[in-house]
Amino acid sequence: MIVLKWLFLTISPCDAAEPWQLGSQDAATPIMQGIIDLHHDIFFFLILILVFVLWILVRALWHFHYKKNAIPQRIVHGTTIEILRTIFPCFISIFIVEPSFALALDDAAEALFPNTAPTPSNTSSSEDSFGLSVLSEPWPITRNLGLESSICNRIRLLEAANSPFLLGKEKGQYWGEIQECLYNVSEQREYYRLLDFENRDLQIRERKHSCLEVFRGVLLRNPYLEERAAYSPQEAFFDFLNERRDALDISNPGSSPAEMDRLEILFLGEIERDLLRRGDESLYIKQLLGD
């Protein structure tokens, strides 16, 4: 099993490190989620550069073989390629620097103001002093553009898959409502709290959608399971997830919403892994459709 995980580059979805794990653990803070997304973005550019450089090397070896070019040339003029290989790295650096600075500013803001945020004021000081007038203005909100972009892209993926866990909203509506709430906050602390909540909520929706896709695959490979269901298997699956969330709330009284969301994410990951590993013999299939 370890060899198969290594060969197929399976990324562990757990919140704790596992032997032979590839990839990062689930992010616990918005800044860590932004760092993971930035890592993936940079690797995208690295792959493009790797392919481009390998193509140039292979092309050079092919066209400058001693049999094809019997008379070697000391100087090879390539004005176009020289311009392109100078301009492209500039654009790539710009794409990488922007989210990097956003993460650095967010990290600095949390370090400077970990538990407090200035109280906003809609009125300026009545004093003529310029210093008093400036200090009475609210602090500007430092936005985590990396995580906001990640949330937007992940919502678009769910929309493209017609996920039933987006509450039946039109394309673009779900992200539009989140963006409006983020832009209307008045304090930095409230912005981080709201962004963290939306990120956790989206992680739950993503896990539910992933579990549903695996469940549909099990039903497709085993048509007899639908006959055992008392009603629509998909509706039964939705009811099962809601009941398990209610059971988590009952068994963990007094837990914070963030802790409850973390437990639900772990439970959904457990369901997905069990369905993938055991298929129609999964314990959760038996709970859903009966023995």
Rank of each mutant, 00 (worst) to 15 (best):
L167R: 12
G172Y: 06
L145T: 05
L132M: 15
E170C: 01
A160I: 06
S186D: 07
D201Q: 06
R156W: 11
W139H: 11
Q203Y: 02
E190S: 06
N153L: 03
L145S: 14
E180Q: 05
S149R: 08
Q203L: 03
W175T: 07
E170Q: 07
R156I: 15
N162M: 02
E137T: 12
E187D: 03
Y174S: 08
S136R: 06
Y183N: 09
I141M: 08
N184L: 00
T142A: 14
Q188R: 05
F165D: 11
N153W: 02
E190F: 03
V134C: 07
S129W: 14
Y183L: 05
D196G: 02
S163W: 03
E159W: 12
L194D: 00
R200P: 05
Q173A: 14
Q188D: 01
S163E: 05
R200K: 06
I151R: 01
D196E: 11
S186N: 05
E137F: 10
A160H: 07
F197I: 11
R143S: 14
E177D: 02
N162V: 02
S136M: 14
L132P: 05
R200Q: 09
F130W: 14
I178M: 12
I141S: 14
E180T: 13
S149P: 01
N199Q: 06
K169V: 08
L194K: 04
L145D: 13
F197K: 10
D196R: 09
Q188E: 00
G146H: 04
L195I: 07
L157D: 10
R189V: 03
V134T: 15
S133L: 14
K169I: 03
D196K: 12
Y191A: 04
L157P: 04
A161R: 05
E148V: 00
A160S: 08
F165I: 13
S186H: 07
Q173I: 02
E177Y: 00
